[in-house]
Amino acid sequence: METKTVKQKPLFEGEPIYSMWLRELLRFIAMPSRILATFASPFTWLVLLGVPLSQVFPTGDIQSMFGGLTFFAFIVPGVLSMGLLFGGTNSGVTVLWDKEFGFLKEVMVAPVRRTSLMIGRSLGALTIALIQAVVTIAVALVLGIWLGFRIISIAGFILAVCFMIITFFAFVGFGLTLGAMIEETEGFMTIIRMIEFPMFFLSGALLPLNMIEGIPVLYQLQFINPLTYGVDGIRGFLTGANFLPLWLDITVIVAFALLFLFLGAYKFSRMEVD
């Protein structure tokens, strides 16, 4: 009788995580339309929305409404947060795609922890989201020479990036949970968009939170929207013009990230491959 050796899976599986990360990037490179969308989107929002609307909200007294920022500087964190919301949620949700196209089976039967699969995948999407964020900030800084956007400090920038990473993972967990719950690819993307866009518009990304104080329900909805805290935090770290206390932004985003990553990981670990 042969003696059996049962190998324990290591806690940290570097190679599988790297493989998943690499696969995300290879896929990204393989889809020119995605590359284009990733780089074009910051331009669309900043140039086509930010520049014209800056003319509607001229500098001067009105700036107090935007926490002392110009309108352009005000929406830069909003545009950044949108990239995180869409990128993160999509990354979670596209697990469904892998299921639909059969690839999930291939990874699920590998002798690898499911959490490693998830981590690698999310890190791939994070890399792309961060590239997009850097492009956004670069474009904003250039236009900001005329339209009044600048970063308060290097420390602020670094903290903003860290905060953006947590926010991103919060939405990965959110997307993963949604994906595992809906389990139906038909019309799925439409449902996701129907959730994402209201979240974006009611987050203070484009307009100050208190501007709609007079509108009941919509005003209150902003405060149960996790993205609100993401936007405010990024804005606070980058420009110093946060509306809410930063500790609150951090607490809410970290809590939201933990909750949904846990829920998403749980759903994912129980997902039937077949």
């Binding site: 393989a30 059969g102 690839f103 291939e106």
Partner: peptide
């Protein structure tokens, strides 16, 4: 660890 599998349905990443 000891097996190789060829599934009945497709299971590769088409974009790669």
């Amino acid at each position: 660890r000891h097996i190789g599998i060829v599934f009945q349905d497709r299971s590769s990443d088409d974009y790669l």
